[in-house]
Amino acid sequence: MQSDGRVVDFSVVQQHSTSEGQSYAMFFALVARDRERFDKLWHWSMLNLAGGDISQRLPAWQWGRKDDGSWGVIDANPASDANLWFAYTLAEAGRIWAEPAYTAQARVLLQGVAAQEVADLPGGLGPTLLPAPQGFQIGPGTWRLNPSYLPIPLARALQRLDPKGPWQAVIASHARLLRETTPKGFAADWIAWEAPAGGGAGRFVIDPQKGDLGSYDAIRTYLWAGMTPRADPLAPLLQQRLAGMAALLQGGAAVPPEQVRVNDGRSEGQGPVGFSAALLPYLQAQGAKNALQVQQQRVLEQLLQAPKEAPARYYDQVLGLFGTGFMEQRYHFLPNGRLQLRWEQACPQKGTKATTTKG
């Protein structure tokens, strides 16, 4: 993170920043009780990704060095997962730090997501979260969806924030997606929904371009499932339908595969250490003790104890912060989606000066 609040991914030529990275960093700043960084991250995101006004424009997903050498928005299409993380984190920061302006901004963002990134898909699926406003209706009756874009704890909280919104139906369509697209217990990066032109029932199909691959996107689906409270009504479904990765690792695989073919369970390659970090909450929830110990040791050696001069890898670090932060009980989610932070328990009543300063 730069001093101005921009999170930079140096692994790409554009040295870009994404709405995903900005929203994740805001969440980590809240968990770390660092309001100064939180405000810098949100200020940079508002100014550079949303043109300074989220009521008029959802944050663009990609900002960086353009082909002509200038810096700015590279792709203005908003990413719905990042917008949900922005809204959720702002709402929780508003509650925890007693700052109504954060909560108001969260509601504005959420209204934009509901209007632009939720579509009532024909064929019986109903209101569904699209990855972005443009580019994901890939045929006359076919839409591309991403299973990793809707963490259930966030959806529960946003449903409370916007009770008149489409979120209950969105959760239902997401549950159906997981129920019907995981025949071997693995999540795909992308799934397509196909609705007949003349009406009738639609169905989930293999994405015509992306195939049945589960890899760098899908790894987050296991992460969110692992962080979903056991008391959540969908927790049993998540544990049942996503049990394939735990079985694979309990069966002797030393590291998570880089790729899985979700229709037959074939795996190949070696996933990076971030995959192991992402799977820690999931393996704990699955009761896969042996696999959990193996992955914890890998994370310790290759991420937490990595030499300081080792190159920074954005995605490994992000997944590492989510996974290890959860396992260290720095945060967890309540069944209603509310965020419970470890530092809150040692503070005076919310809204006092002590909760608005860094610990």
Results as ranks from 00 to 15, higher is better:
191 I>D: 02
63 W>C: 05
172 A>M: 11
78 P>S: 07
5 G>A: 00
100 P>V: 05
39 D>A: 09
341 L>C: 00
265 G>V: 09
121 L>Y: 10
235 A>N: 14
340 Q>V: 02
152 I>M: 11
349 Q>I: 14
348 P>D: 08
218 A>F: 08
189 D>M: 00
282 Y>F: 15
25 A>M: 10
137 Q>C: 10
79 A>H: 06
81 D>W: 12
342 R>C: 00
253 A>Y: 06
32 A>E: 12
4 D>R: 13
100 P>D: 10
234 L>R: 08
324 T>R: 06
274 G>C: 08
63 W>P: 06
27 F>T: 01
322 F>N: 02
103 T>G: 14
56 Q>W: 10
220 R>H: 10
133 P>G: 15
331 Y>F: 15
12 V>I: 13
261 R>P: 00
333 F>S: 08
8 V>A: 08
272 P>V: 02
339 L>P: 09
258 E>T: 01
252 G>F: 08
229 P>A: 01
224 W>A: 01
127 P>Q: 02
27 F>A: 07
205 V>D: 05
352 T>S: 15
194 E>W: 09
68 D>G: 04
83 N>S: 09
315 Y>A: 02
198 G>C: 12
70 S>G: 11
236 P>N: 04
109 L>S: 03
347 C>K: 02
49 L>V: 14
27 F>H: 06
132 A>R: 05
357 T>G: 13
147 P>W: 04
111 Q>N: 12
194 E>H: 08
326 F>C: 07
72 G>A: 08
22 Q>S: 12
153 P>W: 03
247 A>D: 06
133 P>L: 10
291 A>M: 03
323 G>K: 03
343 W>H: 12
230 R>A: 15
325 G>W: 03
77 N>F: 00
265 G>S: 09
118 V>G: 01
316 D>T: 04
343 W>A: 01
195 A>R: 07
153 P>E: 11
55 S>F: 08
218 A>P: 11
178 L>I: 14
316 D>G: 11
116 Q>D: 05
262 V>C: 04
230 R>W: 11
5 G>I: 07
306 A>S: 14
152 I>Q: 12
342 R>P: 05
98 A>V: 12
45 S>W: 07
218 A>H: 09
85 W>E: 13
342 R>S: 13
140 P>Q: 00
14 Q>N: 13
224 W>T: 06
311 P>S: 11
6 R>V: 09
231 A>P: 00
316 D>A: 11
37 R>P: 04
83 N>V: 13
84 L>N: 00
351 G>M: 13
22 Q>D: 10
121 L>R: 05
138 I>H: 06
276 S>E: 02
317 Q>H: 10
13 V>Y: 11
180 E>W: 03
245 M>N: 02
277 A>T: 02
188 A>M: 04
116 Q>S: 06
243 A>S: 15
331 Y>A: 02
247 A>E: 14
247 A>H: 13
118 V>R: 09
298 R>P: 06
225 A>H: 10
89 T>P: 09
57 R>F: 04
257 P>L: 15
81 D>H: 13
9 D>S: 11
